[in-house]
Design a protein around this nucleic acid. Structure first.
Lengths: 216, 216, 216, 216
DNA sequence: GATGAATGAGAATTCATTCAT
DNA sequence: CATGAATGAATTCTCATTCAT
């Protein structure tokens, strides 16, 4: 009996912090940290304002939880893929980026990027944490993928710092855009052919032996 | 006695609005709109709180003024360059982007991008104005430059929407980054060779006849 | 130890709005709307400033509540008396006026007259509401009482509009006076014989067959 | 030359305080003291805000000037009439009241009554001054007129305090009404026959030998 | 004298946080 | 655990008053 799933009420109790953080995330992304009222967060999560304080010490703690709770796993998963695909850097890069987009950038969680960009100035410690735990690891990961390709002679030897920004920032910006201006006026254009064109450009710039140009 | 206290009433009706908007811009960028207190804006501009209200009806009006006051000229200037350089699309694109970076993205004004991204959700009308007056015009401009190159057979024929994002977003993201996370933890790496590598990648992906690869 | 400090949180959701409105009424009457600070209202009601906003959206809403909350019942009660006493218009008029004085004009509520006179210019909509809901109904009521008397040949046939003002304004002015100048310098003189003399004058002017003059 | 009228500019200068007080009066009456901004007063008088301070030390001083400046002469004028008409108390009373209405109650100055009623609580000293300088003198005057009539056997012997209120308050209330509720919703009804009916009622109540009743 | 830009104390309003129930 | 009434510090905004020009 001790190993059976807990009763519904119990499960609810354990899920609460995540539910509250999820409600907070969408509001923080939408309106910013300062402009989001805890009333609203509580309402969206279907609890009373006081309940928030059973799980989080303060509004700032809620912010930290939102940031800290839900990004690290993705990085770890991608890091694990390196070993499996290190023999095929092109595919590795392609998968890594597509994976980021569909599992993070294009999801609710993608809002964290816009949020962190907006609030880094107000929460330097949280930003430092995020930088260490996510940004540095993620950019290192991209760097290692690119270096793998260079070592194998598949990618051109160029400044890796610049290269990974060049490769990643278009996707990152799409995600940020989606969570700010796109909400009220300039919808993101992401046609089906997006990744075709995106990778066409990326790899033509990147590959030592670019694909044959059909139009020539 | 040689250092008398500054006069309490300094009359500067002409210059004041711009000074106030400049002070507001840097604070809005740094802390966000909601988290910026008008006290601080006034203090940074060297005036009292009440003075702000001689020039702006409300905090929101100040926000609008910050956004509306100072971006349009750049777009117009770049639009004017098209005609002069339409015979050399590669140089035109290069100049347009470098110009954007050094006259906007890398300056104080670049903070407007980060600010607008952060606050679009709270000020949909301002965002709509900014979208129309700046974003749409600027992306159209980039689109026209790319189309010029395609028409002349210099650039490959690809989806212009995707292309201009791919080309512009790395620069835009640099600017946004510079005004958020870079301030507290992850400084932007922009080595001298940045634009060499940037344009190497861009044009290798873009040009119908890519440059010879010297390194191989 | 027997006198513990009062609990900081006293839950009285039911009674609060009325308590707050009562506190507001007396201060509004005493100092006027604009000169009354919400701090004072809250203090007089024994709550904090913020509590006011749990029950009223704004200072103006509080004003409306003060005006709207507590006058209508009196008019209705008086209207109901007409039917019961329509066969004796003299007594009906007498009762109506005495009733007004003791149940309204001379009570706390009487302050509403002075308040409305002072603030009509600043709150035209509230004034319009008060005019419709109270003034028009009350003056119509007085008019009907007078007409009843005329129809039965008890009262002289005169312009009812003027008549009811002549009859009512002395009482109304007493109430207004009581809530303004009387508070600081010129106390209202209301000797026991007031209503004797008042009705002596009123009915001598009004009655078709005036009472015999005992004093001559 | 020394006796000729001063140059235009000079005349203007001397008239200023009165002009400013007049502008202030109408605004104070309309919106109350606290809700009137000195900006508005200055604008209505066609001067700048700073100019007000050349003539009045403070907003309160302006209020005092408004109250003190312009009521006393009327009382004095009416007091002077007593001697001339003391042999005909009925006509004296009639003239005194009609005079009050047309030279004060119905004019701009009548607004002072509403103003003083509204602000007595906030300016006890001004109210005390007004009480002494105007109210007491005016009510005494009315009292003396009534006593004259009683001494001559023309008026009935009744409590003078009550009597003068009964006689005067309807007119006073008309004036107050005109300057508050009448401005936004309930216009004062003053038909041509007003004073006929008014005096009919007053003197029928007052006179020892009332006029013959034509309708009987 | 006159002006109007500048000031800053003061008031309304908001909202994170607390705590009795 | 959960609630939501109550709190009060913090912030926007107003406007009487000052003073350099």
């Amino acid at each position: 009996m001790s190993e059976s799933s807990p009763p519904r009420h119990q499960r609810r109790k354990e899920a609460r912090p995540a539910e509250l953080a999820a409600a907070a995330l969408s509001l923080f992304v939408e309106k910013g940290f300062a402009a989001t009222r805890l009333d609203e967060v509580a309402a969206r999560a279907g609890v009373s304002k006081g309940t928030l304080y059973l799980y989080f010490d303060s509004k700032e703690a809620l912010f930290r939880a939102v940031i800290e709770g839900s990004v690290v796993p993705l990085v770890e998963q991608s890091e694990a893929r390196i070993e499996a695909l290190k023999h095929d850097p092109e595919r590795l890069l392609r998968e890594t980026l597509v994976n980021w987009w569909f599992n993070f950038g294009a999801t609710e969680l993608g809002g964290i990027c816009k949020l962190m960009i907006s609030e880094a100035g107000n929460f330097p410690e949280v930003a430092a944490y995020y930088n260490e735990a996510v940004i540095v690891r993620w950019m290192n990961l991209l760097g290692r993928v690119l270096e793998l390709g260079m070592e194998q002679g598949v990618f051109r030897r160029l400044n890796v710092d610049i290269l990974r920004q060049q490769v990643f920032f278009p996707l990152l910006m799409q995600s940020v855009w989606k969570n700010s201006l796109a909400g009220c006026c300039a919808p993101v254009a992401l046609p089906d052919s997006y990744f075709d064109t995106y990778f066409d450009l990326v790899f033509r710039g990147l590959l030592a032996a670019p694909p044959l140009e059909p139009s020539r």
